[in-house]
Simulated scan of single mutants.
Amino acid sequence: MDGGRGPSEQPIFTTRAHVFQIDPSTKKNWVPASKQAVTVSYFYDVTRNSYRVISVDGAKVIINSSITPNMTFTKTSQKFGQWADSRANTVFGLGFSSEQQLTKFAEKFQEVKEAARLARDKSQDKVETSSGHSQASSVNGTDDEKAAHAGPGDAHLKSENDKLKIALTQSAANVKKWEVELQTLRESNARLSAALQESAAGAEQWKRQFSACRDENDRLRGKIDELEQQCSEASREKEKSAQLERRIEALEAELRERETELRDLRKQSELIPQLMSECAFVSEKLEAAERDNQTLEDKVRALKTDMEESRYRQSRLKGELKSFLEVLDGKIDDLHHFRRGLSQLGADH
């Protein structure tokens, strides 16, 4: 469903908003026409020179409002605006996500409203011109006869008059179509009113449920705070436990080292009797060695004494030998002299 748009209608501005309609019973409360933000567009009909605001939610037309010069768009808050449509017998409200979108829609509404006023003034001028032309035709002859004798200006007026007749015919057809749409909208409004009453009853139930949920939420928040506190304490205890575990691991490692050392000492203690026996044997050998050493020292002292005596005797012998050698040298010299004397004596004889 396209909201009754004809092939000559074109979108000139599009935005998104939450659509509301005034409650027909109270004329005060707003009734949501869409569950979520929907597309809202301005359409311009080239043939009719008219403007409409149209919004469709799925296959349902929720806005079909023709803009007239006497309409006014009012900003009721920073993100909400409304306008009254007497033909649809309702008030439309739009909720935007930002103030900028609301401002743009309001500016475009003012532009479209001014364009509709200009189109209306131009249409009225055409109707008045066409009416004067018809009166002149009734005085001076039929339209066909006038067209046969009239100039180019009269022919243009006749063409405009024909276009106006066609537009009026289309307008009559559109009025019938709009009446059908209006009846459909009224039926939809009645269904929406019934749905609103059901929604009001459901809203009360939802309020009670919301209150219960809020109380439950408060209780759960208290429980969550308590659990968070417990979790914090558990975290601290966990950290302490981790520190104790690390300390225990260090102590266990140290204990294992001590046990290893103890095993080594036990093994060494098993060797102590053997070592003591060996030590006694070594002590005996040491005592014997000391005795031998003492004996050797005595022998060394005796040898030293003998050596000194030997040195003394050797020194005396060297002196005596030296004296003997000196005497011997004298004797040898005397013997040489004696041999030379014998040799000389032999030579003389």
Results as ranks from 00 to 15, higher is better:
K223A: 13
K223M: 04
D225R: 03
L227C: 09
L227W: 07
Q230A: 12
Q230D: 14
S232F: 08
E233Y: 10
E237G: 10
E239F: 06
E239T: 14
K240R: 10
S241F: 10
A242I: 03
Q243S: 11
L244F: 06
E245R: 15
R246Y: 09
R247G: 00
R247H: 08
I248D: 01
A250F: 10
E252M: 05
E252C: 03
E254D: 09
E254F: 10
L255S: 09
L255F: 04
R256W: 04
E257P: 04
E257L: 09
R258C: 07
E259G: 02
T260R: 15
E261R: 13
E261G: 07
L262D: 08
R263L: 11
R263S: 13
D264K: 14
R266C: 00
K267S: 12
Q268W: 02
Q268S: 05
E270V: 04
I272F: 04
I272H: 07
Q274K: 08
L275T: 08
S277C: 03
S277H: 07
S277I: 07
E278T: 04
C279E: 04
F281H: 07
F281M: 11
V282W: 03
L286S: 04
L286Y: 09
A288K: 00
A289H: 07
E290C: 01
R291S: 08
R291F: 03
D292L: 05
N293V: 02
Q294S: 08
L296R: 02
L296D: 01
L296M: 06
L296K: 02
E297R: 12
D298Q: 11
D298G: 02
D298V: 08
K299Q: 05
V300E: 02
R301K: 08
R301I: 01
T305N: 07
T305E: 11
D306E: 13
M307C: 13
E308V: 12
E309F: 11
E309Y: 10
R313Q: 12
Q314S: 15
S315R: 14
S315E: 14
S315F: 14
S315L: 15
R316L: 15
K318L: 10
K318T: 05
G319H: 05
E320N: 04
S323N: 09
S323M: 06
L325F: 01
V327I: 12
L328K: 12
D333N: 10
D334K: 14
D334A: 14
L335A: 02
L335Q: 05
